[in-house]
Computed example of a mutant assay.
Amino acid sequence: MADDRYGLVVDAGVEVPVPGDGETWTVGAVVLDGRGRAFAQRRGAGRRLFPDCWDIVGGHVEAGESLLEALAREVREETGWRLRRVRRLLGVGPSTPPTTGSAPAIWTGSRRTGRPASTWSTT
């Protein structure tokens, strides 16, 4: 399935949930390079949630966004990369407070090229 607005391909069999009214969701991407290595970024020590921890790219879904729109935006904002492909849905589950309402999260795969725009470490 292709999402023409973003030039994004969603592989066959991937079913992206649709948030219900009043629900707050988060999204995250396990970003893979051409050799199958996953990208992780270190959260700042001053972050409210999970300070100074390694994490995948992601964040909250803004009002009016679909999960795919939010995923593409978060990848672009945090790395400068363009999300091109969603290979699979790895899971849906509750998000960590203080997110309000019913707050499942979506983790999905994508492919990247180049280096991220934000600062990152390989250690």
Rank of each mutant, 00 (worst) to 15 (best):
L68F: 07
G28R: 07
P98A: 03
L90R: 10
G13F: 11
S102K: 00
R115G: 01
A63K: 04
T99V: 15
T24F: 08
A105H: 05
D21I: 05
P94Q: 08
R48G: 04
P19I: 11
F39Y: 10
L89P: 01
L67G: 01
V16E: 14
R47L: 08
T79S: 07
R88K: 08
D4A: 13
G13M: 09
V16F: 12
T26L: 08
E74K: 03
V16D: 13
E65K: 03
T99P: 01
S121L: 02
R88A: 14
G36H: 06
W81H: 04
T123A: 10
V9H: 08
W81A: 05
F39I: 07
T24L: 02
V10I: 15
R43L: 13
D52Y: 07
A105R: 09
G13R: 11
V14P: 14
E15W: 10
L8G: 09
F50T: 14
R88D: 08
R48H: 01
R37V: 07
S66C: 04
T26V: 12
S95I: 03
T113N: 05
E23G: 10
G44D: 15
A72C: 06
L32D: 07
R43S: 13
R5T: 13
R48L: 12
E74F: 02
C53F: 11
F50V: 13
P51I: 09
A2Q: 15
F50N: 15
L68K: 01
R85V: 10
D4I: 06
G28M: 08
G59R: 02
L32Q: 11
G109K: 01
V27Y: 06
W120M: 06
A72P: 00
A29F: 10
A12N: 13
A72V: 11
D3V: 15
R35S: 14
R88S: 13
G101T: 08
R43W: 05
A70F: 01
P94F: 04
L83I: 04
W107D: 12
D4N: 04
G91H: 10
E23I: 11
W107P: 00
P51F: 03
W81S: 00
V92W: 03
G20L: 15
I56Y: 15
G44M: 11
P116R: 03
G13I: 08
R88W: 12
R42A: 06
A38I: 12
R87T: 12
V86Y: 05
D4M: 07
D3C: 15
P94N: 09
T100M: 03
L8M: 11
G28D: 04
L8P: 06
R43K: 06
R111A: 13
G7W: 09
R76F: 10
G46R: 04
W81R: 02
T24Q: 11
V10P: 08
W107Q: 10
A38S: 07
R76L: 07
L90K: 02
G20H: 14
W25C: 10
G93T: 05
P17N: 05
R5K: 11
L49V: 13
M1L: 02
S118T: 06
H60G: 06
V61P: 01
V27H: 05
V75K: 04
G20K: 13
T26E: 12
P97R: 02
R43P: 00
V14I: 14
A105M: 05
L68I: 04
L8R: 09
R76E: 15
P104M: 00
S102F: 01
A40L: 14
